[in-house]
Design a protein around this nucleic acid. Structure first.
Lengths: 206, 206
DNA sequence: TTGTTTTTGTGCAATCAAACACAAGCGCGG
DNA sequence: CCGCGCTTGTGTTTGATTGCACAAAAACAA
């Protein structure tokens, strides 16, 4: 019950559980078990139970977990029982794809700002959001109190943009640029690099 | 030296090392050390040395690692010292973004096929590649011996598409659909779900 | 040559994560 | 009401991963 330093690796699995639970709920399911969830996810039932037990007792012996209740609890733990405003930096193909993606709202995020430095893009509209000049980024982010950003700029300028984001108060960055970023303590970064993910698998090919 | 079951977690770090080394090489650097690399990546120097020592002795005491040599070695280990043909399934925004991305070629991959089931997309061209009817997918993949695929279709049809891909001989799947996939042993899956990555970080926000 | 500095590769210890196994609780059928 | 089957939560064990610390090798300067 008490939150005494939950391992990162446990936190990292919660969004996976959440995604699967949401899917079950869409299918009209009411109840599941650690065993069923484990089979769907390729994770042992014991591990799922132990992960969840870090935060409370959400199940019922003999029955399992009420899907709606557990979903709600995990959303609370992850703080996605609210909607975080997200700033996207970079209005290229990737920025375009994420801005157009409709699946964020239900999962705790809403893209409300898009920035770029290309005059031919500034002023155009992505999914009802006007692309703004990156010069105004710091001010806008600070004014709106935005803490979450997605970085979809070229690798060469990623670090300098990150420095501005951090300065403006961003605390969580989803980085699509294929470079490692340097950020101060208290700022989190997650990396999405398709080539890295692919290279993870080629080792195992014949 | 001998490849006696290297832990997955070690393999997972190699692409990160590779990316950083490539960057150093672009900057004209010749030599680096486990310490420098570790500082750049936020990983302990000891861990980097131990990871690399699983595959051989690539460094020189007192000097460090020759960047070009180490790069080559890691490329060999990961089997990205060749170019893998990649099939993209789903010609939506994400499929469009990855097909247009020019950064794959130098990292071991080349997208050579794009499939979709939407008649209005079939026949159009993405980055010089014609979008093909998904009906022909199985045959095309098998004929070309393609082992790597990127899945950028809606969540609802992801599993059924995966079943076809597996049947056609695909062994590595980079999945952008926000669902867990079920695949037989011998087939690897990596997941990219921006919402999951973001939810990983919101736990730590105030 | 000799001493100093640097950095690797690795045995060992410590920490962290996963799996096991079971008592206890719940639901249900008879 | 009783007994059976199912499933949770968790103490304990097992296993994996990381960090520590140092001998040995290389480079370099004097």
């Amino acid at each position: 019950m008490v939150d005494k330093s939950i391992p990162d690796i446990v936190i990292g699995r919660l969004p996976i559980y959440l995604r699967s639970l949401t899917r079950m709920m869409e299918q009209g399911r009411q109840v599941t078990s650690s065993q069923e969830l484990g089979e769907r996810l390729g994770i042992s039932a014991a591990q799922i139970r132990k992960d969840l037990s870090q935060f409370g007792e959400f199940g019922k012996q003999g029955t399992g977990y009420n899907i709606e209740f557990l979903t709600r609890k995990i959303q609370e733990i992850l703080q996605v029982d609210r909607v975080w405003e997200v700033a996207v930096v970079g209005a290229g193909d990737v920025g375009h794809a994420v801005a157009n993606y409709g699946g964020f709202q239900h999962r705790g995020f809403r893209i409300t700002r898009i920035f770029d430095n290309d005059p031919s893009k500034i002023g155009t509209t992505f999914n009802n959001i006007k692309v703004m000049d990156i010069e105004r980024m710091s001010e806008e982010i600070r004014k709106a109190g935005i803490q979450v950003a997605m970085l979809t700029v070229p690798a060469g300028v990623a670090q300098e943009v990150v420095d501005i984001l951090v300065e403006a108060g961003i605390k969580a960055i989803l980085n699509y640029a294929p470079v490692n970023l340097s950020v101060p303590a208290g700022v989190r970064v997650q990396y999405i690099d398709p080539a890295v993910h692919l290279q993870n698998m080629t080792y195992y090919l014949d």
